[in-house]
Design a protein around this nucleic acid. Structure first.
Length: 299
DNA sequence: AACGCTATCAACCGCGGTGTA
DNA sequence: TTACACCGCGGTTGATAGCGT
């Protein structure tokens, strides 16, 4: 068995020299399944010392019999020092719901707005907690519409074609018009059917009966949103009250990361979307790991 | 104590987009 | 231009912890 693995490895190596790129991993010698503490230690030690030049090379250089892909997953989902532990708090949950209404199952995009949280974690939390909560509230977790409400085919036909999963235009949590810091819909945007953020935003008005309802009393989602917690300024002020220029520290964003996308007058959800484009890359930590460690303690 | 069921979450799989030889 | 690998993503699975009977 071992001989065969070696033979295959050599063959694979020879193949590499003839073909373009190297294979990502040697399928005959990689280990699968749960990571051991020893493997974790090796991976953490290697990445903290060297960063990850490319994931394919990491297992080899770190002395791990793992696929590079597996190493990346283990690092990003579990070993990264800046990860938050424990269940998502209420604010994070609400943000996930909001972003899910806007983005659909684009977990990585959603995760990029919750520093310290991984796409896998959010996906799991969605499937195990939030989904059930929404159903309990009478809200369809896929469409974010009330469960009892039949979708209007005319309305559906009006939806934007690039709307993710065709389900994101009904929710008053959808908030290009919504100011996270004030809890108010921006008046100048209130009647707009589209916004400038066109690949992430969708017509919000008059597309479904849900949104044009005059009386929201019977609507579970509206009831939720109109609940004390949701209307409490303190809840929405998390974006601005965390201290001076560090507007978004409640999400673990430092002023430097938020400054690229948000100014004081631009304190709506677009900063979140802009932040999606911030590529979290450990190689930057490679320059000065001590800085990294300091930052990691903040979260 | 033993068993079965459910919930949770780490890890894997397969795919699509992109980069490279 | 083509073929293939890399990377990241979303969906799914499987192990196991927790709980009730």
């Amino acid at each position: 068995m071992e001989d065969r693995a070696v033979t295959e490895k050599l063959r694979s190596t020879a193949h590499i020299e003839l073909m373009g790129r190297k294979p990502c991993c040697d399928k005959f010698v990689v280990k699968k399944g749960p990571w051991t503490a020893e493997e974790d230690a090796k991976l953490v030690s290697f990445i903290l010392t060297n960063g990850h030049c490319c994931w394919r090379a990491v297992p080899k250089l770190a002395g791990l019999r793992r696929c590079g892909k597996s190493c990346r997953l283990r690092w990003t989902n579990y070993l990264r020092p800046d990860l938050k532990r424990g269940l998502l708090n209420e604010e994070e949950e609400k943000l996930v719901i909001d972003l899910h209404a806007r983005l659909g199952n684009r977990w990585s995009k959603i995760a990029s707005s919750l520093p310290g949280r991984t796409d896998n974690e959010i996906k799991n939390h969605w499937n195990t907690h939030i989904k059930k909560k929404l159903i309990k509230m009478g809200i369809d977790p896929i469409t974010h519409e009330p469960l009892h409400q039949e979708p209007d085919p005319i309305i559906i036909s009006q939806q934007m074609p690039h709307s993710p999963s065709n389900n994101n235009n009904n929710n008053c949590l959808n908030s290009d018009n919504f100011n996270y810091s004030t809890g108010q819909e921006s008046p100048e945007n209130a009647n707009n059917q589209t916004t400038s953020n066109d690949n992430l935003t969708f017509p919000r008005k008059n597309l479904t009966g849900f949104e044009t309802q005059k009386d929201d009393d019977d609507d579970p989602l509206m009831s939720c949103i109109q609940s004390e917690t949701f209307l409490d300024d303190a809840f929405w002020n998390f974006a601005t009250t965390s201290g001076g220029d560090q507007d978004y520290t409640a999400f673990g964003l430092s002023s430097s990361s938020s400054s690229s996308s948000s100014s004081s007058e631009d304190c709506n959800s677009t900063w979140l979307l802009d932040y999606n484009d911030f590529d979290f890359d450990l190689e930057c930590f490679n320059i000065d790991m001590s800085t990294f460690e300091v930052d990691a303690t903040i979260n």
